[in-house]
Computed example of a mutant assay.
Amino acid sequence: MASVCACGEYFNVSAEGELCLNPGVMGLRETIYFRTVGTTQFRKTDYPWLARVKVKVQGAGGGSGGADSDPGGSIPRPGAAAGGYSESLLEVGELSAVETVVVGAGGAGGVGNNPGGDGGASAFGGVVTAPGGQGGSANTESGDTNVTANGISGGGAGTGQFAIGGGAGEGAIRISASQGMAGRGGDSVLGFGGYGRTTTGPGGGTRGWGAGAGGAFSYNGSSQPGTVGGHGTVIVELYG
């Protein structure tokens, strides 16, 4: 009679005589993407085979400031900052039965001569967190002479086994009543900041998740709004 041998590191024989995989040796089985802004829940009991999770958390980016110049003048705005990023590999026993998942909203764009809003923090419970990035400032007044505006410091690092701050928003420069450059938004680990413009118009939009919006540029009395920052995200890889 033929016989079969199975490696005990990967397999076991159940009481019913069935050949089964050992928990924790199946590798990546599923990935969950939390992309909707707001709060939801992760329940580990929904995955009875779960052995560990790899959690990736991206904070939201800041929105850029608006610009409303006087006739014969111009205002370029700096870019907004990106949110921080954190990740951790966690054994199933380290998780609570229910973990609250928060996806931060991108900061609102400023209207008139008002700054942009800060990006919201994202989190997987209290275990892995990432702060949002600062909104773009609106300190420069309308004029026709050379002036510069500082960039915006990137979002700080959150909590996790690996945690890193977001990219800074770039500064802006005015050369004359009609020439200058608005700042580019900061890059995040999972997204790209809005572009820095040299013509009148609203702030540049982001791509991906968690990046800062590009600054608006107003010239000769044209009011230009800032732009919303990139929303955050939470990614959970499930290993069996």
Rank of each mutant, 00 (worst) to 15 (best):
Q41E: 13
A67Y: 02
F42Y: 07
R174M: 08
V228P: 05
S96C: 09
R77Y: 03
V98L: 12
E141W: 09
T100F: 10
G38S: 01
A6P: 00
W49N: 12
S3C: 09
G203E: 14
G83I: 11
G109Y: 02
N220G: 04
G109Q: 06
G154T: 05
L19Y: 11
R43T: 08
G185E: 12
T159W: 07
T45K: 11
V228G: 02
L95H: 03
G169N: 02
F162G: 05
S96E: 14
M1P: 12
P76G: 05
V228Y: 01
S188R: 04
G230Y: 06
G93H: 00
G143C: 10
T159G: 10
R174K: 01
D144V: 15
N12T: 14
S142C: 08
G151C: 03
H231A: 15
A2H: 12
E141Q: 13
E18S: 14
L21Q: 09
G107F: 04
G221I: 15
S14W: 00
A177H: 00
Y10E: 11
L19S: 05
G63D: 08
E9F: 07
P76T: 00
L238C: 06
E94F: 01
G119T: 06
Q41S: 08
T31H: 00
V92C: 00
L19P: 12
I235V: 15
Y195P: 03
S74R: 03
E170S: 04
A216C: 03
E87V: 01
R52H: 05
G232W: 03
Q41T: 09
S218V: 04
F192I: 12
A2N: 15
V234S: 13
Q179R: 14
V4A: 09
P131C: 00
G135A: 10
V236I: 14
